[in-house]
């Protein structure tokens, strides 16, 4: 078995061994190594420090580092598990693993819930849902009147909030998604199925044999 620690380029803050990350996620060692190539690219796009900053994520998502977006902010916050303002390699791989086609659906449902739970209260509230619809309108060409927004939010909220207590809890969310599976379609990235084949430029010479 080779020694990954011999590569100086991999001495970056938050770097974790691909073997460990592969053991904890649906990724193989080769795929984790391919993800490291992607991580290096993203984490050096503005500040070359081996960490993904919020502006770097925004640049990758929008090709514009100044394009602030509520949902990109939420993605960043959820990936930044340590809450230290940057995404480290281990956080990147573990968070992306939820988007793997083979990841448990329950994990995808839970991750999406946290995305929508803007204020981290453990519930999705009506005001949060309205704020997100308004944010979506702001970033798109879609134009809706205030009355239309209220109607969409009311209708969606009533469908999901089956207990009628004015907020959507994780159980209600799970049930709602099971009836509307398209809601978590964006929680699966087919690219991750075999990133080493889909993105040949990311393929690096693996120093560790995959255990599969």
């Amino acid at each position: 078995m080779g020694c990954l620690c011999s590569k100086n380029t991999k001495w970056t803050p938050g770097y974790e061994e691909p073997t460990i990350l592969a053991a904890e996620t649906p990724f193989t060692v080769s795929e984790v190594e391919a993800l490291y190539e992607l991580f290096k690219k993203l984490s050096s796009s503005i500040i070359d420090d081996g960490l993904i900053h919020k502006e770097e994520l925004q640049l990758a998502l929008f090709k514009n580092k100044n394009n602030r977006n509520l949902f990109a902010d939420r993605i960043f916050d959820l990936f930044d598990v340590k809450r230290n303002g940057v995404i480290e390699f281990g956080e990147f791989v573990r968070s992306l693993s939820v988007f793997h086609p083979n990841a448990p659906v329950a994990d995808k449902i839970a991750f999406a819930f946290r995305l929508y739970d803007l204020r981290n209260t453990g519930f999705i509230e009506r005001e949060e849902l309205k704020e997100m619809v308004l944010a979506l309108l702001h970033e798109s060409d879609l134009i809706l009147s205030d009355d239309d927004v209220e109607m969409i939010v009311d209708k969606s909220f009533k469908e999901a909030d089956t207990t009628g207590d004015g907020r959507i809890d994780p159980e209600e969310w799970k049930e709602f998604v099971s009836k509307n599976p398209s809601l978590i379609k964006n929680m699966t990235l087919p690219y991750l199925k075999d990133i080493t084949l889909a993105f040949p430029s990311f393929v690096v010479s693996s120093e560790v044999e995959d255990s599969e």
């Binding site: 990758a60 929008f62 929508y116 849902l129 239309d148 969409i152 909220f157 964006n186 990235l189």
Partner: peptide
Amino acid sequence: ANPVSMNAFELISKSQGLNLSSLFEK
């Protein structure tokens, strides 16, 4: 589809900020 008949969550899920496939674009 008439947006008013759409589900708010479905609408939101189409945000570019939630489209992580962009991360893989070269």
